[in-house]
Design a protein around this nucleic acid. Structure first.
Length: 109
DNA sequence: CCAATGACGACTT
DNA sequence: GAAGTCGCCATTG
């Protein structure tokens, strides 16, 4: 398989600031490659391979923790977010709008 | 080879 | 603004 796309996604996810979150679409948009579905696909592999990727900081466009079922336990994703200062209620990031981080910011914008 | 299936998102009603 | 529809694209049946 071509790991180039995976590495590109991981590079972005790795630099998501602690306490902030981003969306699948934002990453796909920033890379101008693949699609939001592919980002989710890549992140699932990262969990299977137990790579040091903060995949819990990536949620869908509505701030919902749609990928929580892929973690070791269904509540693991929320616990990780809460542990670093984000508040989660009903599988959704509270104040998602203000905690949203676009990969564009990693370029100094 | 064709159909269904997702860690999704934009668009239309 | 919530709910439904369609596009997306690799993987799986």
């Amino acid at each position: 398989m071509n790991t180039t796309y995976f590495e590109a996604v991981y590079d972005v996810v790795r630099v998501i600031p602690k306490g902030r979150v981003t969306s699948y679409g934002a990453i796909a948009d920033f890379l101008a490659l693949g699609s939001a579905r592919m980002v989710g696909w890549a992140l699932r592999q990262s969990l299977d391979e137990a790579l040091p990727i903060p995949a819990h900081r990536v949620v869908n466009r509505q701030g919902e923790l749609t990928g929580r079922l892929h973690f070791s336990t269904p509540t693991r994703m929320a616990e990780l977010l809460i542990a670093e200062g984000s508040m989660v209620e009903d599988n959704r990031v509270v104040e998602f709008k203000t905690r949203y981080w676009h990969p564009r910011e990693m370029l100094g914008i």
